Amino acid sequence: MTIEFGLDTFGDVTRGADGELLSHAQTIRNVVAQAELADRVGVDFFGVGEHHRPEFAVSAPEMVLAAIASRTESIRLGTAVTVLSSDDPVRVFERFATLDAVSNGRAEVVLGRGSFIESFPLFGYDLRDYEALFEEKLDLLVELLKEKPVTWSGTMRSSLTDADVFPKTENGMRAWVGVGGSPESVVRVARHGVGLMLAIIGGPAGRFRPFVDLYHRSVQSFGTPTNPIAVHSPGHIADTDEEAWETAYPGFEAMNNTIGRERGWPAYSRARFQNDVGPAGAIYSGSPERVAAKIADTIRTLGIGRFDMKYATGTLTHEAMMRSIELYGTEVIPRVKQLLADG
């Protein structure tokens, strides 16, 4: 099986050489430069997340992806994720079909309910409808992806009767749904016949094997297409383990503690970080050799078709991320392919 390798970013606002936080504008320009480098070093996919809070610069990922499309040649482009629950499926399709046109067929859409909830009150949605909004809107978007006139009705938005949506893509568009680890979400993905993107941000990858098996059983039960399964996990690469860990830790600490204060998490610690970068953790950080071995083990354990590393976390500098991207493309990906070929 051909394995794809991607990179994801949420557009985290980082610090410059003077230690001060960069502007949102400069952060976005840096994301475009990071994607350019990823394209040059042979990465297969580049994903940009959607958030609506001060720690992240990207609230309109399709705009950033369109800029990236104009400055890259081969890399596939998508989101990580599009918060479909607080968006409109028709507009989501139209934006991504437009991105697909300007990128010459390189667009993908990765959909999710959103682990951050800022977009719901911002766009006038009730959090009590969290589940129903996503279920209905996913149902409609899957119909729109068939690119034929749609007749549809639901309770969360107005009905459509023989509605046709433009522009059309030239060769269709791949769609994924991001899942954090609930069986119901996995079954939903299988029922709709789209790709499963497992967000593994804690614990060993092996604990997600039951979800992979459930997806395959559900696909057979529903008679829907079998799509590749992908994994999204955080990481950072440097020339040595020690350099990677020393560089990455402050960003992981800052981001975990910022979010943790809102969600009641305990303070992040160096001991926890070292556990997370080990075999039992979900952070893929260290030297190219260490990271490649861990990715290869995850691919074998889960039987996945794509691995996406979330290379940006917290205040990690642009320069450090650029080096991480370079090593991912030039050293980690070739090593993983060789490890898999060797068995």
Rank of each mutant, 00 (worst) to 15 (best):
V212Y: 02
M173C: 09
R91P: 02
T313S: 10
I259Q: 10
T330C: 10
M173P: 05
E62K: 07
A101Q: 13
L127N: 10
S86E: 11
A280G: 11
E243D: 14
G195W: 05
E331I: 08
R272Q: 15
R188A: 12
F134K: 03
H51S: 10
F45G: 02
D18E: 12
D162N: 15
A17H: 11
K148F: 08
R290E: 11
A238Q: 09
A341T: 12
A190T: 08
E289C: 09
A238V: 03
I325Q: 04
V150G: 04
S74M: 12
F56W: 10
V212Q: 01
W265Y: 14
G195P: 07
R91Y: 11
P183W: 10
G78C: 01
T2I: 13
I3P: 11
R191D: 07
E108A: 06
V31R: 00
P121N: 11
A244Y: 04
A312N: 04
D87K: 09
T247P: 06
S119L: 15
R306P: 08
W265D: 04
V177P: 04
A132R: 15
S287K: 06
A33V: 08
E253H: 08
V219S: 08
R157M: 14
W245L: 12
Y284R: 13
D100F: 10
G206R: 15
R306S: 09
L138D: 00
